[in-house]
Each structure stands twice: as C-alpha cells, then as structure tokens.
Design a protein around this nucleic acid. Structure first.
Length: 421
DNA sequence: TCTGGGGTCCTAGGACCC
DNA sequence: TCTGGGGTCCTAGGACCC
C-alpha cells in the first residue's frame, strides 16, 4: 500500500491568481492576520529571497521595487477553494485524509496501472476543475511521501509528481534531503543533529535506534522508522474530535483601556463558544491571556484560567468566566498588543452530566437561546446578533488594507466578466 | 513605526496515594 | 549517621505542524 501526499503549490497565492490572471509571472505574497508576516509566496517572490514567515515591513520596499503584489489574508476565500480541491480529489474514489487547508493524504490503490499516470491525472484534473496547481509525492510511509512531494515541487521535469515505491527508490533522494526539511524535524532538532554532523536524511538513518530514542524521544524514533519505510502513521480519514479551541488576535494599534480590552475578550469568547457549539462540544476549562509587544523590552505576558463545575458552551457563562480572568491579569498603564481566549477539557454536548451540588447549568432554555443566536447569525451573517458587551461596533482591530474580494462566498463579490468582440 | 493564528503531542516534575 | 518503592494524575512548557 502507498500513501500520496497532495500539496497545493503556494496555496494562498494560487487562490488569488484564480480570480486575477494579471498576477501570473509577478512576485505575489499573502500576509498573515494584521498584515504582520508573509505566509505565502509565489515562485517569483521566493526567487527574490523572501523567506516563509518573514515580517512584511522588512520586504515592503523590495516588493514595491520589483512590481510585487501584496494581499491581506482572505481566509473565507481560501477555505472555500480548499473544499473544491478536496472534492476534486474525492472524485477519484480513494480514501482521503484532509491534513490542512492545503494538504491531503490519500491511500493509493494496488498497482493496477502505473501510479505516476494516476498522479498526473490528479494534477491535471485539480488544475482544470479548480485552477489550483498541486504537487504529489507517493511512497510507502507518510514521511517519505512528504519528502517525495518536496522533490516533485522543486523539479519541473517531474511535472508535479514523484513516486518512490521502495526504500531503494528513495535512497538517492534521502542522500540529498536536508534534515531540517524532514517532516517533524524543526529548527531545534535540526540544530542538534547538525552539531553531531548529521546533515542529510541518509546520515540520520545511519544512527543507532537507541541513540535516536534517547535524544529525540519517541517522536524522533517514529521519524527514523518512517524514513526506513516502516509505517508508524496510518491514514486518518475521520477527523478526530478536537481537543481545544482558541480565538486570539494581534491589535493595531495597541489597547490600553481595561473596558476596551474587556469588550475584545468578550467578542473572542463569543466566537470561541460558537465554534464549540458548531462542533457539538462543551468546555470545562477557559483561559484568557494578554500580552504587550513581545519584541519590546519589559514584555508583559500573563494568563489566568477558570474551570467550570459543569462543562458548558453557553456564551454568557463563558463570558463571565473570561471577565473574571481578565480582572486577575490586567495591569493598568500597559499597551496590549495581543490577547486570546483558550478553551479545553472539551466534551460531547449530548453526554448528560450529573452534579449533585450545582444546579444544572445547561438548562434547555439556555440551549434554545444559543440555538436561536447561532441560527440568526448563520442566516443573516456573522455578527448580526451579538451581546452588548462584545466589541462589534468598533472598527476592525487588525490591519488588513489589501484584502481581495470574497469571490466565492459573497454574492456581492461575484466577478463580472465583460466580453469584447 | 512594523514580527500571525490555530492546532497537536510529548516530557518533566510536583502532588498525592498506599 | 542512616528516611522506600511504585503507582497515578495534573500542569506547564517545549517542540512541532501548516
């Protein structure tokens, strides 16, 4: 059995290009929330030496000089395009695991025909149906499929797909695959390995298994085995129920007033509670964190949490908890750059909880209220109905002056096309 | 001037139990 | 002089992913 890793090329940039063909051939980048970092780059932008995750302000001038185009993030568009890519992949009737917004694993069939032909057909169909270019790596384990994908993406001669059926086929690639590019090896581990003169995946595989386990724990051992074509990760078609929910944002400008921050936290809590209910979950633990600019000296960052005797997804209850947390950590006279609400200890909503001492908190009445709230916001748009203590009337908290239209999710943003004869 | 957001998994260490 | 051994559970923090 073989795994395929399908990865959309420069995904966010490719999404923008689908609706704006003038962007082809030019350096294009997409920014993170608050227009902070560069999180997607076209090949032309990569060629300029712009690294992934770079602060935008450091490259603003370079992009301007080279005719680059810059976009604020437009996540509703990217999420919708992602769904289209997944649907196209599902049309091949093979098991699909959605791994991230721009990646999916698939289980490849027994070789009734060359896998490379199948991969080429997938590349072609996804491009034709969605406008998004993809790359495919195929190998016996997920970690090797990840590696194959990187080579498929880099070498145009491969036309978007590389199949490595056995460890022998993988060997020449392992020899020139840098350790920091291995799936699961981050900068800290890469530094450690390089200190020990291990630069390529092949060097890593020459290590003693016990040594790997001792220094890199079971996580490292799994990577070692997977690179040796021994499977440690299976295809996970059914998404596991999530274990936490976070809503957090950076602000431009910073927030100093308690009540301003209080409104913001209330808004975050409302959104977090909404996510919870959408997933049919309740939370038993809520924490609030606030921080000043982390790059400045005297950086202040603090969090407080509260546990609920009965887990809940009732917005007013969570808001009350969040509010009490904020009181504990707020310090007057500081400029806060970022804040967030974190929920965990999640349970299924329908599990009937018993508690002798507390009145049942999740009364049917409260459930009904939340259902109506969610329904109205679904029907009439997010933010149509909200709590008075939320900040909704305020202008947006984050910078996002370069956002493209919601081409596929908002009727008013549909493209109109003029035909010229 | 200016540096994202949302997740998961693993480990070490403390508290507690008998 | 000399202070056990073997568990569990919880939490904070680190590392990693996209």
């Amino acid at each position: 059995m073989m795994f395929a890793l399908i990865d959309c090329n420069n995904f966010y940039v490719s999404c923008e290009r689908v609706f704006n063909p003038k962007l082809f051939g030019r350096p294009v980048v997409v920014l993170s929330n608050n227009d902070g970092c560069i999180v997607a780059r076209s090949n032309e932008a990569k060629a300029l030496g712009i690294p992934m995750g770079a602060p935008f302000f450091q490259y603003r001038d370079l992009l301007e000089k080279t005719g680059g185009v810059v976009f604020s993030a437009n996540f509703p568009l990217y999420a919708d395009m992602s769904n289209r890519v997944i649907q196209t992949l599902e049309s091949f009737d093979l098991p699909v695991e959605i791994y991230s917004i721009d990646e999916a694993f698939m289980e490849m069939p027994k070789m009734h025909r060359p896998l490379n032909d199948l991969a080429q057909e997938m590349v072609h169909r996804v491009l034709q149906w969605t406008g998004i270019p993809i790359s495919i790596g195929i190998a016996p384990t997920k970690t090797l499929a990840k590696m194959a994908n990187k080579f498929a993406k880099k070498d145009p001669k491969l036309r978007g797909a590389l199949v490595l059926p056995t460890l022998m086929d993988a060997d020449p690639f392992l020899q020139r695959f840098p350790v920091e590019d291995i799936w699961g090896i981050g900068s800290t581990t890469a530094k450690f390995l390089k200190r020990h003169h291990i630069f390529y995946a092949k060097d890593f595989l020459k290590l003693d298994q016990r040594y790997v386990k001792k220094h890199l724990t079971v996580t490292g051992l799994r990577i070692f085995l997977e690179l040796s074509a021994i499977r440690c990760h299976q295809l996970e078609e059914i998404a596991a129920t999530r274990k936490s929910v976070v809503v957090s944002r950076s602000f431009t400008p910073e927030i100093s007033e308690f009540w301003d921050l209080h409104r913001v936290i209330a808004g975050f809590t409302a959104r977090a509670a909404g996510k919870l209910r959408k997933a049919g979950l309740t939370a038993g633990y809520l924490s609030v964190f606030i921080t000043t600019n982390r790059f400045a000296k005297n950086h202040y960052a603090k969090a407080a949490h509260i546990t609920f005797p009965l887990s809940s997804s009732y917005t007013p209850l969570l808001m009350k908890g969040a509010s009490s947390c904020l009181y504990k950590i707020f310090k007057q006279g500081l400029a806060y750059k970022k804040a967030g609400v974190f929920l965990t200890d999640l349970r299924n909503q329908d599990v009937d909880q018993q508690d002798f001492f507390e009145k049942k908190l999740q009364e049917p009445k409260q459930n009904r209220l939340m259902k109506i709230l969610d329904h109205i916001n679904f029907q009439y748009g997010e933010g149509s109905l909200f709590f008075a203590r939320e900040n909704r009337k305020c202008k947006s908290l984050a910078a996002a002056s370069r956002r493209s239209a919601r081409y596929t999710t908002n009727w008013h943003d549909l493209l109109s096309v003029k035909l010229r004869y």
